[in-house]
Design a binder for these strands. Structure first.
Lengths: 205, 205
DNA sequence: GTCTATACAAGGATAGAC
DNA sequence: GTCTATCCTTGTATAGAC
């Protein structure tokens, strides 16, 4: 944690993420990664027995990064709410290759799947809490249970798939990110009060 | 088109789709497919030079199926609108393996990508037209351009990713489909008039 | 602890015999 | 139209050098 030499393990993880993000996880071989790092494939195997272990390490780091960002706050504002998404989407972008292989990843590795679902329950709870707070503060109108669920689901799906959507739309640069934060803002706009609308429209510019 | 023997080519496509849907495109090898069909790998190569050619054939068929379903209708009703999505999602489910590899697929094969984007423009146009029709008929409230775009984008993203989402949620059976049709209905509910709300709430049961 | 060399099975793809 | 033989690349595993 100071001026220490970066460990081989750390080098592997860092470079793997770069190559994965550039070329896609499926298209980066262990040998290719090794060659790029001026070492032999077997050496990577020493630190990470399988390629999946590298991916799991990356997934774990993404999760930690997001835990730091998505927290329950009392009396949240519209800007605060959107700010959380902006920070979370920055983390998503940093680990973007993971999102493109997401469904396959979860299906393959049940350990990851279970952790993910547990965190998702917390995330849902946090976002629900924040939305209710925005209703209470008069920025969003009163919503039925069904409406709240629909809104939540659309926000969650935007968050899960914005990277995939950006790839499909051929606009996968880092600037595409704000488009999807604005999509979340737009979803709030659909159920905003006059008071909330004014603020959201400011954020949408 | 009659009592003709099913061509080898047709057998390959049909069985490939089944195996792809069951195991995932990436996890079905050409040899495995061949063995399942009681033929040799090289024979499949004769009909489809590469595995991608099989996938492209499947993608083309999905597109044709959806072209039959998603058409511009004058004076559409809420039920008619949701019915289109139900039929489209049935087609999606039929070719579900494609959706799980979708972003990678488009990135790899520019030919497919171009066709897809052209069709998407038409689809967007069609849905926008229908939403405006529902506004005019007094089922949805007046929407600003931004609001209409947001609504459209969420509907499009639901359609693109509902299969991936179902996989993530571990509920990828055919019955999961209606959950996402209802999500589309729910999105309409957020901007429905009292008149529209009554109809949508009926559809949501 | 760190790394190299090497082997193996499985995948996509090709050329050419029948 | 069908199939064999073969090539190259992957992911993975292991034996052993430093």
């Amino acid at each position: 944690m100071s001026k220490e030499k970066i460990s081989t393990r750390e080098k592997i993880v860092a470079r793997a993420l770069e190559l994965f993000n550039d070329q896609g996880i499926e298209y980066v071989g262990v040998r290719e990664l090794a060659k790029d790092l001026d070492m032999k494939g077997g050496n990577i195997t020493y630190y990470f027995p399988t390629k999946d272990d590298i991916i799991l390490e990356l997934a774990s780091r993404l999760s930690e990064d997001n835990n730091r960002v998505i927290v329950k706050k009392e009396d949240i504002t519209i800007q605060g709410f959107l700010n959380i998404f902006e920070q979370a989407y920055q983390n998503h972008y940093k680990y973007r290759s993971l999102f493109l292989s997401f469904p396959n990843l979860l299906k393959q590795t049940p350990a990851l799947s279970e952790k993910y679902h547990q965190r998702q329950l917390l995330r849902r709870d946090t976002i629900t809490h924040q939305l209710k707070s925005l209703i209470k503060s008069g920025h969003l109108r009163e919503l039925s249970t069904v409406e709240l669920d629909v809104l939540l689901k659309s926000i969650v799906m935007t968050s899960r798939f914005w990277i995939s959507d950006a790839v499909i739309e051929n606009s996968s640069g880092p600037d595409a990110m704000m488009k999807y934060v604005k999509q979340v803002a737009g979803l709030l706009l659909l159920v905003a009060t006059a008071k909330g609308r004014k603020i959201i429209e400011g954020a949408l510019k």
